[in-house]
Design a protein around this nucleic acid. Sequence first.
DNA 1: GCTCTATGTGTCATTTTAACACTTTCAAAT
DNA 2: ATTTGAAAGTGTTAAAATGACACATAGAGC
Lengths: 249, 249
Amino acid sequence: MRKEIKKNTALELNPNVSVDCVIFGFDFDKLNVLVINRDYANGVQRALPGNLIYDDEHLDQAANRVLEELTGLQHIYLEQIGAFGDPQRISKESDRSWLQSIRAQPDARVITIAYFSFVKMEDYQPQASSFAKSAEWIPINDIKELAFDHYEILQAAKSRLKQMIKIRPIGFNLLPEKFTLSQLHKLYESILDKPLDKRNFRRKIQKLNIVMSLKEKQRGVPHKPSQLFMFDKDQYLRLMQNGFDNFGF
Amino acid sequence: MRKEIKKNTALELNPNVSVDCVIFGFDFDKLNVLVINRDYANGVQRALPGNLIYDDEHLDQAANRVLEELTGLQHIYLEQIGAFGDPQRISKESDRSWLQSIRAQPDARVITIAYFSFVKMEDYQPQASSFAKSAEWIPINDIKELAFDHYEILQAAKSRLKQMIKIRPIGFNLLPEKFTLSQLHKLYESILDKPLDKRNFRRKIQKLNIVMSLKEKQRGVPHKPSQLFMFDKDQYLRLMQNGFDNFGF
DNA sequence: GCTCTATGTGTCATTTTAACACTTTCAAAT
DNA sequence: ATTTGAAAGTGTTAAAATGACACATAGAGC
């Protein structure tokens, strides 16, 4: 018998449904993703933060709870990517042996609902706990494999991010309050994974009026100091409401 | 005790995960959606075709199977919309009483994975079976309520369709092999839910080279007969491969 | 042959895009 | 004090895309 009898208590995990989170961060040079490391027989393996949901829990809440339990990150707006449900998605040998050490029903079919978000890296210092041995930011392009089907989920998240940047001014979430246009430019290049003409980029961004130039400049840099900017929240909200559908580079 | 002991046989339904399908059709005038009718104590209620998945089944396969079982539609490319997982999503009284008549574990938490697709209405005459009393095309704008959270799912599907039409030439799937530009025009207006300038629409479509004009005209219409067109499959595939991201009306 | 109805067609002003190179400002090193 | 290195900042032009707009045409039914 593989499944246990399941009582209807509020705090019971649902053995068939999990959530996984892809959290993007930007270090002014490249995109990073938040991963946890877990011990297993033959070493350490990376995975996205994720776990089973409780039976009476909203999916979105579950994603937030799990993310916090494993990495300490709180109060993050997570957006659903979709469900991943290959019946074999958790049956690699390294995954199975690990599941046996942490799950009451390690052989249950599990479908997972993936979520993603993007944050200012500086604001969130990951703090591992629960079954995560550690939690850290890893450059996206350095990731060659992950547990379960998490690599596939990561690719889906990247492609959603790429789409999303064309219809929403995402920089808001990934950059600190004050930033330079070069940093924003680099962010767009990192996400779209292609070079963008500097002058055309600046023209296009400025026409949207979502950035306001401050009276302040960078200091201590060994080159011409850059103007600092902030996002204009009102203008941002106005754009979003009018269903803004062209931010295409 | 709400859940039964669950054995690990291949043909067992997973009590926690279902799929639901939103199938759009176009009758040359407006968008329709395929719904099933089910009997319950106080009458008839409409629902999207959907049901539990088997424990060893891919989600996509489950969606295809369920759609066929309930409506007879086969061989349809279904695209995932996402997961819907409100813990209360199946607890309206009318839904519960109906579930008790068809489910082994009517009180289990069920999350559903929604799929959508669009077909040529003429090619698919719905044939109800299983617990569907009937299956039929209903104009989208006539639908005011559906079972469970299906109305919400329908809205999500509509909004995905609206997005998708901006990045893919969807007419391929919704129109018969030979069609007129006016029909295509009307289709775009129905999906986008706003009028589009006739001349600008025609110019834009023709520039893409995805439609080929035939040597054939409409016959028997009480007005100037329209030129017939077909889609150019090669050009379509070429466009799709190059990641075609602007079809914006 | 008259009427009704949907088809089909072109222009122009405005906006958007893509391509492209040099000067400026600061810190650090000499 | 001068030089050097490194990134910031800035404008023009040609080509393409967009949006607004009105009237002649072809067939069916009477």
